[in-house]
Amino acid sequence: MSRFLFPKWSNALLPLIALVGATVPIYVLYFVAFGFSPKTLEVGYQPVQPVPFSHALHAGELGMDCRYCHNTVERADHAAIPATQTCMNCHTLIKPESPKLEPVQASYQDGLPILWTKVHHVADYAYFSHQAHVNRGVGCVSCHGRIDQMEVVYQSQPLSMGWCLDCHRNPEPNLRPVSELTNMSWGLALGLEGEARDKAEAEFAQQRIEVQNLYHINPSENCSTCHR
């Protein structure tokens, strides 16, 4: 009577199965940790906008202050997308007939807003206030990245809760004098080398501490700070 016998090599297979069994959970963990992270899923979102507006030109090359257009940022929680009027402050005169400006002109004529696509979305259950951050020396660049170098704006930071907490736990590296809010290159010591660079960096560090002391910055980590 024949009886099923496992082949001899099945004994050698077992350590392999054990190895796979040990690897799979680690694999899955890492896959979830990296693959499902906002750094993968959220960062780099670069929607096509109705108007090919270039931040690199306006904010970078022209050096226009961010607040020229996003004028509510210091007074309100929301940093406003500018009204068409704001564009037309200049573009009534400058290149008014440019095809790139057609949607702007159309909006200006019929009074219907331009439908910009929102890039930076903080979940609706989190209450983020621009004014609270901006008026305490957190610069635009900290959350939005080098807007002044972006032809088309994309999300450069994960905007995840952990990312918020990193700064709330250690705000100092993201502080700057309020006067340098919109200065994208502040604190970089660009073009400096050696001792001069060290000196500049020491000075930036000093200024960050000063700002922290000036505004008594001790960010809350309570749940209700953001979820209320």
């Binding site: 009886r3 496992f6 001899k8 004994n11 077992l14």
Partner: peptide
């Protein structure tokens, strides 16, 4: 263990 194959399993009495 586990050791699915063992020479003893070849023997009918051993069952």
């Amino acid at each position: 263990l586990p050791q699915l194959y063992h020479p003893l399993f070849r023997n009918k009495r051993f069952r």
